[in-house]
């Protein structure tokens, strides 16, 4: 069993990986909206964590720290995707389904509408909303993960809920506003 030690603690990397791989994968998937890319970014996240863990100090909040790495890794990927988005040979097979089709209710169930609404939100609000609702993070944990002040989390979540409601309503009613 591979053990990774910080200055004071000892962790089993397999245990960390087994415990966090699914939540981190889902979090990254909702940030990037592509399953294959989420697979790769999840591995990236754990690779970075494995390399950096021995340098961390004793009072490390492992879960917030892992999500922080995942967030930054996903943001980097989204930034790169924006840079190459104009390329004509972009792989559209892995893009989310066309949410502007005529009747979204027929294409999507509620779950798909939720996912599509998430994809349309600004990425920083999406991350905050996911951490709060899906991962059950507190305001201070979200602040630590996203590297913002706690007052900022209040604002992020407020904007996130407004944005999500707007997009969800629009999709539910069959509108395709982008």
């Amino acid at each position: 069993m591979v053990r990774v030690e910080t200055k004071e603690n000892s962790w089993s990397f397999e245990q960390i990986y087994d415990e966090y791989k699914t939540p981190i994968y889902n979090y990254v998937y909702h940030l990037v909206g592509d399953r294959e890319q989420a697979d790769d970014l999840t591995q990236d996240t754990f690779l970075k964590a494995f390399r950096a863990l021995p340098k961390m100090d004793a009072n490390l909040k492992l879960s917030a720290w892992l999500y922080r790495i995942a967030t930054n890794t996903a943001y980097d990927a989204l930034r790169r995707r924006k840079l190459i988005a104009w390329l004509p040979w972009q792989d559209l097979d892995h893009e989310p389904a066309d949410v502007e089709s005529a009747d979204p209710q027929e294409i999507y169930g509620t779950t798909e509408i939720v996912r599509a609404a998430l994809r349309r939100m600004p990425q920083q609000y999406r991350a905050a909303l996911l951490l709060y609702t899906q991962e059950g993070f507190s305001y201070s944990e979200i602040a630590h993960t996203l590297n913002i002040a706690e007052s900022g989390v209040k604002m992020y979540l407020s904007r996130a809920r407004q944005s999500f409601r707007e997009h969800y309503r629009s999709l539910e009613q069959g509108g395709g506003t982008k």
Partner: peptide, 25 residues
């Protein structure tokens, strides 16, 4: 959002490992 079904990551199959960050991991 809290009830959103959780997806499982794809298992690490040897064929997919080559050239991916999973191989490094």
């Amino acid at each position: 959002l809290a009830r959103l079904p959780r997806l499982s990551p794809h298992p690490l199959s040897p064929g997919k490992l080559v050239g991916s960050s999973a191989s490094l991991l």
